[in-house]
Design a protein around this nucleic acid. Structure first.
Lengths: 208, 208
DNA sequence: TATTGTTTACTTAACGTTCAGTAAGTATGA
DNA sequence: TCATACTTACTGAACGTTAAGTAAACAATA
């Protein structure tokens, strides 16, 4: 089964909204890329905002879906945090148009829809909050202002939209690894075990 | 001496661009808030883009100006990093309209001007880079991929535009303090001295 | 199997509004 | 009388959206 027309429209819209911005992209632009005329789009949507909304909703729901799965997996707090960060970063390589548009243009949504998207966004951030809180309670992490650390983590990940390029020096996995190092060390109560200094570190087996 | 008309225009424009977005703000909106008619604005500017450009340039130049001063001060690496972060965050409380517009709408600038602003932005980030590099060289910080850490720091600070409110729970200084804690611990080679608190630390006399 | 009706996926043409920008004129003060 | 700081009145283009129509595919019936 090939991609449905609706998904095609969303993919093209997301790409253009990302490249030129939501307001700067005209319905003609989108129609042109789909090889149809502008009014044809109105066979599928009621307004231009519908397109933006569908993109934002899809992005944040995918984020949440992934996070939900990770939280349900059997793993320690540290491992879950690692996976959550990796998932967050990987969304920028796998679905970069959608994710970027969601972060950069969400403010263009009409008030009502915008609020709903932001509530989903908070739901997503809550997974970070839970992990950090659990980490403090179990003595893994130092005492800290959890919501502020969540914002810091969200910030460093979301800011990917400003600089991430698929053809960049580092893969999504590598970026996530570096962010994880930074966050983990920043939150740990005790300093992590030093690695054997210069031993092979390709696949780390190091568990704490 | 009262604020010049030009500064007034920039301040009003920045506020509206922030509230409604650059594209959604009309020249009539700006003129209305200034109690003049639209063409009066064209006595001061040539195009709408001039307004956005002036705001972005002013924001990033103020950021750089502050960073330059901090870097020239007599202080250790750690203290300079603390001040740089505090300066970064404080721009969001002191000049939040301007700073937010610079981050959120810079992409609306025409290509040429946008490139210039982004080059200034890189200049600013370079101060973080220098400090981290020096920190590694002097043995204060662990080995790490400096540009990635700079991006993480920029991200957590810049993302303030998404959530910072002047009437929020924490002051700019407090936020900067928490960010500094997180970043500092994330970068240090050795764990920071625990405050004597009560008994001396149990573990962690082992330094590498 | 031919006829008729219905649905899908569009098209052409245009409407109505918005909005950046301009031309030309004017009040005020030095 | 000249510059400053506007005003009124307008232009031209862009753009979201709608109206009305249609070719092709499909379904129902006779």
């Amino acid at each position: 089964m090939n991609k449905s027309r609706w998904e095609e429209i969303l993919a093209v819209s997301a790409r253009l909204f990302r490249e030129k911005g939501y307001r700067a992209t005209t319905m003609d632009d989108i129609a042109y890329e789909l090889n149809v005329t502008k009014p044809a789009l109105y066979y599928y949507i009621k307004t231009k905002h519908d397109l933006l909304y569908a993109i934002c909703e899809s992005a944040v729901e995918q984020l949440i879906e992934g996070a939900k799965q990770i939280m349900a997996e059997e793993a320690g707090i540290e491992e879950k945090l690692r996976r959550l960060l990796a998932w967050h970063v990987s969304m920028f390589s796998a679905n970069s148009d959608m994710t970027t548009v969601y972060l950069a243009e969400e403010s263009e949504l009409p008030e009502e829809k915008r609020k709903f998207i932001r509530s989903l966004s908070r739901e997503y951030q809550d997974y970070y909050r839970q992990l950090l809180q659990q980490g403090i309670e179990t003595g893994l992490f130092r005492e800290m202002e959890v919501p502020m650390v969540v914002r810091a983590i969200s910030g460093m990940c979301n800011w990917l939209f400003d600089w991430y390029r698929p053809d960049g020096k580092f893969s999504a996995e590598e970026i996530a690894g570096m962010f994880f190092d930074l966050v983990m060390r920043g939150c740990l109560k005790e300093q992590p075990e030093r690695k054997p200094a210069r031993a092979a570190r390709k696949r780390n087996a190091a568990k704490v």
